[in-house]
Amino acid sequence: MPGKIKKQFLASIGRDNPVFVQVLGICSTLAVTNVLENTVVMCLGLIFATACSSFTVSLLRRQIPGSIRMMVETLIIAAYVIIVDLVIQATLPTISRQLGPYVGLIITNCIVMGRAEAYALNNPPLPSLIDGVAAGVGYSYILMIIAFFRELTGSATIWGHAVPGFSSWWVNWSIMVMAPGAFFALAGLIWIIKTYIVTDETGGK
């Protein structure tokens, strides 16, 4: 079993990574990658939602009628996203205001739905839970890399703090914290990864 878990994680982080192989689910989260702190909160919420909804869908997989399964999956996901939203509102009110509608938009994030549809419907609950966490982590670390560089180059800070020996002379690339920066950063990362790390063209669509 531990070997299998490791394999699932490695696959999500590398070859099957949802972000750069399929470019799925970037909508709701690209918007929050201009500050690292918001991204981490958002990613934790996403991992929680993916893992729990995969687990629940898998538990109910024999009861869900095939014809309305998408609707049922969406409702399960929405229920968990509401939990995430309420927790963030209660514990981190400032971040909740900055994130705005994007927490709610985890519902329509293709990755959550994709894992439920592709894996949880055909597998027992525990592996589905692990698969959900793995997909969430594989997605989150890409976004954290993007957020790290966007915040570093755009505001010369990390986690809201100045970086010693860097912030004093760095001229902020303000474009990086605005909308186009996210597109360029993601494109650049995909370019680097596809050229040097995952070179074979298999799962791409």
């Binding site: 750069f20 470019v23 186009p180 920066g181 996210a182 597109f183 360029f184 993601l186 494109a187 995909i190 370019w191 680097i192 990864i193 596809k194 050229t195 791409g204 669509k205």
Partner: peptide
């Protein structure tokens, strides 16, 4: 490395 989604993202940017 940029074929497909990569170049589309750059255009979108």
């Amino acid at each position: 490395g940029l074929e497909g989604p990569g170049i589309t993202l750059i255009i979108a940017g």
